[in-house]
C-alpha cells in the first residue's frame, strides 16, 4: 500500500540552511547535507530544499549543493526556488534531485509546465502554490508570497495538473507559521479537484494536525519545517502517532 509521506522542508540561502535547525549533535547545523542526513536517520520520506537565493552566481552553488546531497543521502528530494527555464530544471535533475518545484515562473509562463513535463516526465515536475483566503475562495500569490495574482488557487491547481504537473505542493499562507494545523478546507478542495498527489504545507503544530490532513483532507504528503527543525517533534514521533491510528506510513 502506498504510504502517506512526511516531508521536512529546508530553506537554503547561498548553499546554507537558514531558519536555524536546532539539532543536537550536528557538527554544522547550517550544512544542508548534515541536516539531510539527520532527517534521513529519523525516517523522513522525502526532503524539500527551497533555495531563497536570487542571484545567478548562486544558482551554480545550488547545483553543486544538489550534487553533494545526492552523493550523501539515499532518499528522494525536491529542489525549488527561482527555477526559471528548462535548462535550470535539467541541471537540477541531472545533479541528482528527484523532482523540481516550480512556483512563480509557472504562473508567469504556464507553458514551462507542459514543456518540462514532456521533456522530463510529469513525475519530476512539482507545482508549488502559495494560496491565501479571499472571500470564499483562495488567491494565488507569487514571488515568495509577496505578489497577489488575482488567480483562483483551485482553478490554477487544476490547470497545472492538466498541463502536466505531477504533484502539487500546496501552502496555505493563512496557516503558515500559526501552528494551528493545516488548512483542511483548502487542502480538501484541491485534492478533490486534481488526480495528482498533493503535499499539504503550512500550519503543522501538533501530532493531530498530520492525522487530520491525511484523513480529513486526503493529502498524500504533509510538509513541515520549524516543527521538525526545532525538534518539537521528530519525524519518527509523527509516524508512530499516525501508525497507531491506522494511517499507512513507512516504518
Amino acid at each position: 500500500m502506498l504510504s502517506k509521506r512526511i516531508i521536512p522542508c529546508l530553506d537554503i540561502k547561498d548553499g546554507r540552511v537558514v531558519k536555524g535547525v536546532k539539532f543536537l549533535g550536528l557538527r554544522d547545523a547550517g550544512d544542508p547535507v548534515e541536516v539531510a542526513r539527520a532527517y534521513d536517520a529519523q525516517g523522513a520520506d522525502e526532503l524539500v530544499f527551497l533555495d531563497i537565493t536570487a542571484s545567478f552566481e548562486n544558482r551554480k552553488t545550488l547545483v553543486s549543493l544538489v550534487e553533494r546531497i545526492a552523493r550523501n543521502i539515499f532518499m528522494p528530494f525536491t529542489v525549488g526556488g527561482g527555477i526559471g527555464d528548462i535548462e535550470d530544471i535539467r541541471n537540477i535533475l541531472n545533479a541528482g534531485a528527484e523532482k523540481v518545484s516550480l512556483n512563480t515562473q509557472a504562473v508567469k509562463l504556464p507553458e514551462l509546465i507542459s514543456a518540462s513535463a514532456k521533456r522530463f516526465g510529469s513525475q519530476c515536475i512539482v507545482v508549488a502554490i502559495d494560496a491565501k483566503r479571499k472571500g470564499d475562495s483562495w488567491e494565488v500569490f507569487i514571488n515568495g508570497g509577496r505578489t497577489p495574482t488575482g488567480i483562483d488557487a483551485l482553478v490554477w491547481a487544476e490547470k497545472a495538473a492538466r498541463l502536466g504537473a505531477g504533484e502539487i505542493l500546496l501552502t496555505s499562507m493563512d496557516y503558515d507559521g500559526t501552528k494551528d494545523g493545516y488548512d483542511l478546507e483548502l487542502t480538501k478542495e484541491v485534492t478533490q479537484k486534481v488526480n495528482i498527489p498533493v503535499i499539504a504545507s503550512g500550519g503543522a503544530g501538533k501530532l493531530e494536525d498530520f492525522y487530520d490532513v491525511f484523513t480529513q483532507a486526503n493529502a498524500d504528503a504533509a510538509l513541515a519545517a520549524s516543527l521538525f527543525h526545532y525538534q518539537e517533534y521528530s519525524v519518527k514521533q509523527v509516524k508512530e502517532y499516525l501508525k497507531e491510528r491506522g494511517v499507512a506510513v513507512r516504518s
Binding site: L2, D45, S122, G166, N195, I196, R250
Partner: peptide, 15 residues
C-alpha cells in the same frame, strides 16, 4: 489508468 481511484503519477513509498 486514470479513474481507478489511484492518482497518477504513482509517487512515494510502496511495498
Amino acid at each position: 489508468k486514470a479513474g481507478a481511484g489511484q492518482k497518477i503519477p504513482h509517487m512515494g513509498w510502496n511495498d
